[in-house]
């Protein structure tokens, strides 16, 4: 067991290959409790793979992901399942179960992992929906909701079990600028109100500068730089400058854009 402070997330020497191609190349990150850490990078940079490796959905080829000093990838599946109750995840496509109602979706982790009374679960689900501004939508079907509302239901589900850490995969992808700002504000509010540690993967730079405490820039599977907003904005690295300014000319070429896993 390595020396890591309590409730910190530590990614150590992470390597992941898909069919021989290196997707994550020796990644090292330390995330403090209560901070919002944003992983940025273009499509195919490996940021979704990194997030999935941190949630335990993908096993790395080498390296460790420590929570509280424990490496989740050395755990058995049962132990990992128990550990997963400590974090929530908001998915790019919301990933709500479409055969359940909004309230049933939010209640699902509570129904599955607790022995609380159904009435109490319903009250908690309503509270969580209120936190994301969706009170009154409990009995709606997922198919009746707009993209932004689905994201918010996904957020409510992610915080249903009062997690310590919430992972967000592209929380603002496909949303209009106003809804983007609403979701960003929600992430900030939830992080403060619930004292969460947030790990966000995105390539929406406006969003990044609104919510991030620290930013890690991933490029071709390597962590180019980790720093505060100011440090990233003032970075002398041409790749980072091209990426945050969204310029066509620079070291990043479109033909390097590969499948995002």
């Amino acid at each position: 067991m390595i020396e890591t402070n309590k409730k910190f997330i530590s990614v150590r020497n992470l390597i992941k290959k898909f069919e021989g191609r290196i997707v994550l190349d020796n990644i090292n990150i330390d995330i403090q409790q209560g901070e919002t850490f944003v992983i940025v990078g273009g499509s195919g940079s490996g940021k979704s793979t990194l997030l999935r490796t941190m949630t335990g959905a993908i096993r790395p080829d080498q390296g460790e992901v420590y929570y509280d000093g424990k490496d989740i990838h050395s755990m058995e599946e049962d132990e990992m399942d128990k550990f997963r109750k400590r974090f929530g995840m908001s998915f790019q496509n919301s990933a709500l179960l479409d055969f359940l109602s909004v309230e049933e979706n939010v209640s699902l982790p509570l129904v599955e992992h607790t022995r609380l009374d159904q009435k109490l679960i319903s009250i908690i689900a309503k509270m969580k929906l209120k936190l994301v501004g969706l009170q009154g939508f409990e009995n709606y079907q997922v198919s009746q909701l707009s993209g932004g509302m689905r994201k918010r239901v996904g957020l409510a589900r992610a915080i249903a079990m009062d997690p310590e850490i919430v992972f967000y995969d592209e929380p603002t992808a496909g949303l209009d600028p106003v809804v983007c700002a609403v979701v960003d504000q929600l992430i900030l509010d939830l992080t403060k109100k619930l004292n969460l540690t947030s790990v966000v993967v995105t390539h929406n730079m406006e969003s990044v500068f609104r919510i991030a405490d620290r930013i890690g820039m991933l490029y071709k599977g390597k962590m180019l730089q980790v720093g505060t907003k100011e440090e990233i904005q003032n970075s002398t690295n041409p790749v980072i400058q091209q990426f945050i300014k969204g310029e066509i000319n620079g070291p990043i070429h479109l033909n390097e854009d590969v499948i995002d896993r």
């Binding site: 335990g56 997963r84 109750k85 995840m89 496509n93 179960l97 699902l108 599955e112 992992h113």
Partner: peptide
């Protein structure tokens, strides 16, 4: 459910 990440969502929630 698999292609819409719903299976992964279940696994992430610790639901088999």
């Amino acid at each position: 459910m698999k292609v819409n990440e719903q299976i992964e969502a279940l696994e992430t929630m610790g639901i088999n």
